[in-house]
Amino acid sequence: MPLTARGREILGSLPGVAPTVTTDGIGCEIVRREELCIGCGRCVKVCPSAAIAESSRFDPAQLYDAPAGTTRGALGAALRRIARHEPDGSFEVPERVRTFRTIEFDRTRCLGCGACTRACPTGAVTARPVNAGEIGGFAGADRVPCAVPA
């Protein structure tokens, strides 16, 4: 599925990127794994359509599944050791705590350019190839085509 005109325009302006527009109906979908997120904010900075934003809240469940050997993983492991019950949802984060914020992803604004995938250092954002048949109608679909090669 070809890119939207706007998506093609933006991709063309990113340095070192050659848009591969395929005509055989293969596209990509952005997939996020919040437990791998370290809160660095690079995806927010590079997204050209403001589809990704830093929220003012944090979901503690992200810590539990963070990989061992990382700061968040160690924090999650420590939290699990003293927790009395499962985390009961997200909460507001004080202003000066910048790297513990849940990232919000607005699919309807996503262009499928894949810049976030390239920027993410931990693989919390990846692109998943989908078949043309899965995509169906473009408008209102909850999967969006992406130009990152499969």
């Binding site: 660095c40 904010g41 690079r42 910048r98 790297t99 250092p121």
Partner: peptide
Amino acid sequence: CIGCGVCENV
């Protein structure tokens, strides 16, 4: 280092 720049800000 991933160059996120948080250190520079604080």
